[in-house]
Design a protein around this nucleic acid. Structure first.
Lengths: 219, 219
DNA sequence: ACTTACCGGAGACGTCTTCTCCGCTTCGTT
DNA sequence: AACGAAGCGGAGAAGACGTCTCCGGTAAGT
């Protein structure tokens, strides 16, 4: 951020790349609770090296997850752009479920386990497109009239829970329940409990602990 | 365990009860990661008192959760005893989802977050009745032929995830998705991914960390 | 061959939790 | 009412774990 000045030495560039890849793997497997030592070790490097490249764990995690979050944004936008409302909705649910199932760190960020503020930011970006997606699907009769936009995120989260239960083994099991969830949105018995309003959803999700958020304040 | 010998003093009895109730509340709200200090404080007592009554946190948690687990067993047995296979299955799903949604500590134990061995024990006790429940429902045509007994636990877990997302606010939201899940078991599009075998389920769930288990070994 | 960027990992430091210890309080019995 | 014993409280010991620093050593590049 300060000034790029001189280019990095060749080995430094290589190590940085190793670090990023290791972080991707480790955070995807074990979530953000994995330590810097873990990441550095996985990269075959010392902790010191990790800290020369990234000021703290939060910064490293953000560097990794920012692109994943960007892909999620791409996913909604593509879904909204899809001329078939139902196909668009399905692609979003399937796409995000797939991403999150494979990446525990992403799952944690999107659920606001560590940093409520960041999660809210993501949800803000998503809520508009999501609302449009659902409204269009309802107008086309592809989805029950009582479905709300907040249902989508919850459905995706439920699907990803399967990955939490099974761990790395059988990483595709969530797909078994995908048709079930999709079918539940289009037909079947109506729910007797009203959906969560966007405001309520945001508020209730923010209750979580914020360890990493606190951490980053120190820098 | 040694010998009950003399009865407790009156205040000791009262404090023990306060402690148990506080533990129930705290563990249900925040899960087993809550500390003994938290529990003691909630009871309006000092930590020392908590440790005189219970050797360690694990013992206290077990005392609380044992009865909850017992109620879960009762729930399966009642479900199997139900002459209507479908009604039995529904009562089990709804009953356990309700219990777990209200109690994060129970949710953690049943998902094996802390102690894989204990979780396996519970699943062993449940798997027989569950299999019978599903087989009967299939025979009666109340459930799709490709549904497996392992699906039930996963469906319940998915429902409870809703409580994890929303926290204490809107504690009934899971019910909104109950009809969806139940409908998914009886009809609708067939899943393309095969169910998890009981063995795989057990194995994959055991991968989790086991902090409290390690703790109890020291005693 | 020599300078300088970079590496590594032991350990300082901070935080959090479990569990102990002992002076003080309260019970209940005489 | 007064005394011994059971029970209480909470400061702090002990230990686990993670972050981040520091500096002697290594190797890149000219």
């Amino acid at each position: 951020m300060t000034e790029a000045s001189r280019p990095l030495r060749k080995d430094a560039v290589r190590n940085r790349a190793l670090l990023v890849q290791a972080a991707r793997d480790v955070f995807a497997e074990r979530g953000l609770e994995a330590s810097m030592d873990d990441v550095a070790h996985r990269a075959g490097l010392g902790v010191g090296t990790a800290y020369r490249h990234f000021a703290n764990k939060y910064e490293l995690a953000l560097a990794i997850l920012a692109e994943a979050i960007e892909r999620v944004y791409q996913l909604v936008d593509d879904a909204v752009a899809n001329p078939d409302p139902w196909a668009g909705l399905v692609s979003f649910v399937e796409g995000t479920a797939e991403m999150q199932s494979a990446d525990r760190g992403l799952r944690e960020v999107l659920m606001g386990v560590h940093d409520a503020e960041q999660m809210e930011q993501v949800h803000d970006r998503l809520s508009g497109p999501l609302r449009e997606l659902v409204d269009r699907a309802k107008a086309a009769g592809a989805v029950r009239a009582d479905v709300e936009s907040t249902d989508i995120g919850i459905v995706v989260t439920m699907l990803c829970t399967v990955a939490d239960v099974t761990g790395d083994a059988s990483s595709d099991l969530w797909r078994r329940y995908l048709p079930m969830m999709l079918d539940g949105l289009r037909q079947g018995a109506e729910p007797s409990v009203p959906a969560l309003s966007e405001d309520m959803l945001r508020k209730s999700m923010s209750t979580h602990k914020q360890r990493l958020a606190r951490l980053s304040q120190r820098g």
